[in-house]
Design a protein around this nucleic acid. Structure first.
Lengths: 352, 352
DNA sequence: TTGTACGCGTTATCAA
DNA sequence: TTGATAACGCGTACAA
């Protein structure tokens, strides 16, 4: 292997020297945006090969002003829902010639803010926040400030699966119809004849996802002239264990419930487990619905009725909009549709 | 908001001007590695606040020589196994104060090589390859070259879940006992009395994961004085659909098989589906085992006997070793153990 | 304790 | 078609 020197990265200068040209010429050959004679180009490319040269992205970013980098900040890398959105982000970023930075906050809202700051240091062209977030006034205010900070340096805050922060806050928003999906699935259960429907996972009312889904649940009841019975509303977190525990608790009381809506499919899988354990059949004895339509839902026993979210499309659109916001004044707020996927876990209530 | 100028990122110079000091002093305050008078520090920090200044990570990397960045290259962001390894990588990187770059190659080995090159441009301190890879001579040779290229510029190739490339190739390797796990689970089935065991997912013999697992399967047979019947070995890919199709095909022939090993849990879930559809009970009529111990395995019907891989530990160790390779001459090859997790999908064969 | 001058690797500008 | 020079934003050696 000719010409490779150990211990230090070759630079344009080294290539220039090896090719007997100036650094400028090397740069031009590599960029291909300037006329260079064929013979010179050949010599330069040869030197690049010999020295095993690659460009220094940091140096290029420093002078060029852009890093061609997109950051995405996500609760976790695991978990079927977020991973699919993340996959959409990564694919679109790659398709647009960008590199992806990824960070996880494990549900810690303050950590999320820290990470945005970190991504601002990294000069990310866009900072995509995946999934729902807090909606307390303080948090929204800090978020608004951060959005403006990013704006000032030519970057862009992107909310993916979360409602806008405020009317005058510069941010790209790609959300899905969280409330509408919850309305639709609840409405479906009500149409089947259910009147005692439990809702599991209603804690954290200041969390955007939680509140939107619960609102849809409530509105569907209202549309049928009903009000939600608070004793049928259980709290908990977004995991399977929570769905299991909350269902167990509900079963100890005589609630008369004939259907359960889990705030996510994962929660619903815990609901199913608890019901099976109690010897109840789904959907004969009790109906169960989830939310998210993660791949696993089709494999549950029985296959779960749920609300479909366009996971990947969410991520892709987020990046696409953010990177092309200067083009023909695109609308920077997109609301993607959701729809109910009817499987085997729901049926009319038993005659009592 | 005082002092924020629109449209351009503030620099140390701006902060210095605002605080009435030199750029050097600002740098020192921010780095905190040099004595600065309390009053000066205060003025500087105040200016930083006012201007909403953050450091430029690219510029710092250019002079400092290090990006504090770790890249990980993975087949997909979705898929339970890789995501967990990725999570380990991300967590350890964060714990070590690094930022993560992520790219996916969707199983395309050439694309993987391109991405490594891209990460070399990005000056990543370590480039972690997650999951198995090709093992053709050409690919190995290109891989070895790349490892040396990375080495030359102070970066490091890390193989996570893949065997070493060669003895003289500079790379950090963290693998798990793929062959041993396959041996153990096959041995378990043989010990239960099974003699006609199918292996599903044996295509791509040049893929490291595939071949290691099939080797373990073969060796277990040999240890019992048996040879593998080729008619019980089916090919296919790593997905559920493949497991389903291959099983269907096996069932059309009278193979006499009493047990099936899927090359992954996902494949095994397809196997289960095909068996159920054929009216066969698991494990009464036929036993099924998988590989990977992804979370879903415990929820399959019946819960799947499988081989556990220390997913997250794999990712964490990979990053830890790579970043500390200068410390006290650490061994840069780690082999983590696997073990069989016995659940409900395996039992002794029926008396015939 | 603080400041000046230079260099990191690249590209843009200007001149030849 | 090619080259010299300056500049990007920061850290560091050296000087004060």
């Amino acid at each position: 292997m000719a010409g490779v020197s150990l211990g230090s990265r070759p630079t344009v200068k080294d290539v220039a020297a090896a090719a007997g040209v100036s650094a400028t010429t090397v740069s031009r050959v590599l960029a291909g945006n300037y006329p260079v004679s064929a013979s010179t180009r050949k010599r330069v490319l040869r030197a690049v090969q010999d020295l095993d040269y690659v460009i220094n992205a940091q140096a290029r970013a420093l002078v060029g002003g852009t890093t061609r980098t997109v950051a995405f900040i996500i609760r976790d890398l695991v978990g079927p829902l977020f991973a699919y959105i993340g996959q959409g982000v990564e694919q679109q970023a790659t398709a647009e010639g960008r590199v992806c930075l990824v960070c996880t906050h494990h549900g810690d809202a303050d950590r999320e803010l820290e990470l945005i700051e970190l991504m601002r240091e990294q000069q990310a062209e866009a900072v995509v926040l995946v999934g729902g977030g807090l909606r307390t006034p303080e948090h929204l205010e800090r978020m608004a400030q951060i959005a403006r900070s990013l704006e000032r340096v030519g970057s862009r805050l992107v909310l993916c699966g979360r409602p806008p922060i405020g009317p005058d806050v510069p941010a790209t928003v790609v959300e899905y119809d969280n409330e509408g999906g919850a309305f639709a699935v609840t409405n479906y259960l009500l149409s089947l004849g259910h009147r005692r429907i439990a809702f599991i996972g209603a804690a954290e009312p200041e969390h955007t996802t939680t509140s939107a889904r619960f609102d849809g649940f409530t509105r569907a009841h209202a549309a049928h002239g009903l009000t939600v019975d608070p004793s049928l509303v259980a709290g908990g977190t977004f995991d399977r264990e929570s769905g299991y525990r909350q269902t167990k608790a509900l079963l100890t009381r005589d609630t008369g419930m004939t259907a359960v809506v889990g705030i996510t499919d994962i929660v619903a899988s815990g609901v199913l487990a608890a019901l099976h354990e109690a010897g109840l059949r789904v959907p004969e004895d009790i109906s169960v619905a989830g939310y998210d339509d993660i791949p696993m839902s089709a494999d549950l026993n029985p296959p779960l009725t749920t609300v479909h979210i366009p996971h990947e499309e969410l991520g892709r659109s987020a990046v696409r909009l953010a990177l092309h916001r200067d083009d023909y004044a695109q609308d920077q707020h997109l609301m993607l549709g959701t729809h109910v996927v009817i499987r085997k876990s729901t049926a009319p209530p038993r005659e009592r």
